[in-house]
């Protein structure tokens, strides 16, 4: 029975690998090597095959590269369908994602060689730059997926999103009652702070973390810090506003990290669909005006 633990270890290791190895390292970078080989082969072909009068997407080698590129783009965009059907095995979603990333990177080489370095204001170059936009946003996505979740987790400080909002609501309820003795002007400041949507600021505010119209900060300006706390109510409201601002800051950091984590998909996906359309227009127009 001495062999059993060994077998068991191997089995477990295989399972651990399947479960926990990053899609980037999948099968010892298998798809990275395949992508590098593809780049080398197409680059070598470009350098060695003499196209008259100059390298061009319309030469036979250009059409070959174009066909490879088109196939890759269509296959890469199918990840959106594939990821909704989770299976295991050789063509597991992880393998598919690994191939998606590395073959997507190889597409930079294949696509660029297909252009023959001829760039202009036309549908062909539009397709090329949409492709680059998709790839670059994808690279960004891989990088932020690798780095930002830790930051996101640290910022949560063991609070759930619901708790963050609940905390703000709790502060708001206290503010409401604490502000009862205040005069009109200061009451208005508190009302505005309470009325403002937690998620105010739009996409730009989220991405940059700048909220110039933040009513809580503005209200704080209306409650000067007085040494010794002359006016009890005013002092309490001020303390609560500071707490509110801190809680808002945590929520907004959360929003910012989430936004930085998610923004690439808002470029990657629409640009992919636009790329498929531009690619279709590119192929049809080339043969329409052959």
């Amino acid at each position: 029975m001495a062999s059993v633990p060994g077998n068991r270890f191997k089995q477990d290791e295989r399972r651990r690998n399947a479960d926990h190895v990053s899609f980037l390292k999948h099968r010892r970078y298998r798809w990275l090597w395949i992508a590098v080989l593809l780049c080398l082969a197409t680059g070598l072909g470009y350098a060695l095959i003499d196209q008259e009068p100059r390298p061009n997407g319309g030469s036979w080698y250009g059409y070959t590269l174009g066909t490879i590129g088109l196939g890759l783009i269509v296959w890469l965009s199918l990840l959106g369908i594939r990821k909704r059907k989770i299976t295991a095995g050789n063509w597991s979603l992880k393998a598919w994602t690994s191939a998606h990333v590395y073959l997507g990177l190889a597409l930079i080489v294949v696509g660029t060689l297909h252009t023959g370095f001829q760039i202009g204001w036309n549908v062909h170059t539009l397709a090329y730059f949409l492709m680059l936009l998709v790839i670059i946003s994808g690279i960004y996505g891989v990088i932020v997926y690798a780095t930002l979740p830790t930051t996101l987790s640290n910022n949560r400080n063991e609070m759930t999103r619901g708790e963050m909002l609940e905390a703000l609501t709790a502060i708001d309820r206290q503010l409401e009652s604490a502000a009862q003795p205040l005069g009109r002007q200061q009451s208005d400041l508190v009302i505005r702070a309470l009325e403002q949507d937690v998620f105010y600021g739009g996409a730009w505010g989220r991405l940059t973390g700048t909220y110039p119209g933040c009513a809580t900060n503005r209200a704080l300006g209306g409650f000067p810090e007085v040494a010794g706390g002359v006016d009890g109510a005013s002092e309490r409201v001020r303390s609560l506003l500071v707490k509110r601002a801190e809680q808002l800051a945590q929520i907004r950091r959360q929003l910012r990290i989430r936004a930085l984590l998610e923004i690439w998909l808002f470029i990657h996906i629409p640009a992919t669909i636009a790329l498929l359309a531009a690619l279709f227009a590119h192929v049809v127009s080339v043969f329409y005006y052959w």
């Binding site: 549908v123 539009l126 636009a274 359309a277 279709f280 227009a281 049809v284 127009s285």
Partner: peptide, 14 residues
């Protein structure tokens, strides 16, 4: 966004 971009390309450029 995807529909708008793709639609504009297919309409104007094709």
């Amino acid at each position: 966004m995807a529909w708008i971009f793709a639609g504009a390309i297919l309409l104007l450029l094709l």
